[in-house]
């Protein structure tokens, strides 16, 4: 089985560029002809992860692996880490500053949305060291429609 690997360095200093990498991945997935719902799930889950990385961790790296059955997104940052993961998973909970909220972010939907759109989520975080989030999205076989 073929696996396509993509790598993105996420610049944490420029808000306006957050979402660029997930946009690129969406375009690639469309060219691959993946199931439409899987494409949506990947682009939303990855977008939320990418935004989080910029807001909270000053950027990081995203590795995406795509096969015909599974898309795996690994978001790695060296930010402050998440103190209480179960609290962070709650809808509406956010540690974002007022500054960030004024830009329309920080609604406390980032991690909950990742969970909603992903099939599997694993969060590995250590305060003061950083966070790695692994998101898996299953790709249904859409060749039957063709």
């Amino acid at each position: 089985m073929s696996i396509l690997k993509l790598h993105y360095d996420i610049d944490g200093s420029d808000f306006t560029r957050a979402g660029e990498a997930s946009g690129k991945v969406k375009r690639v997935l469309k060219k691959l002809g993946l199931d439409a719902e899987a494409i949506r799930n990947v682009s939303i889950a990855m977008y939320e992860g990418e935004i989080n990385m910029v807001i909270h961790a000053g950027g990081g790296e995203i590795d995406v692996e795509i096969s015909s059955e599974l898309v795996t997104i690994v978001l790695t940052d060296h930010g402050p880490g998440i103190e209480d993961v179960s609290l962070a998973m709650k809808e509406g909970y956010s540690t974002a500053t007022d500054n960030i909220r004024s830009l329309g972010f920080g609604a406390g939907m980032g991690l909950p949305n990742i969970k909603k759109y992903a099939n599997e989520v694993a969060i590995d975080t250590k305060v003061g060291v950083g966070t790695t989030i692994t998101i898996k999205i299953y790709v249904p076989d859409c060749s039957a429609e063709l």
Partner: peptide
Amino acid sequence: ISVLKLADNVEDALDLMKELN
């Protein structure tokens, strides 16, 4: 109209995308 797809099945498209990159 699926003119943007690289191939009719995902496996072939993945191989082409790797080559494209």
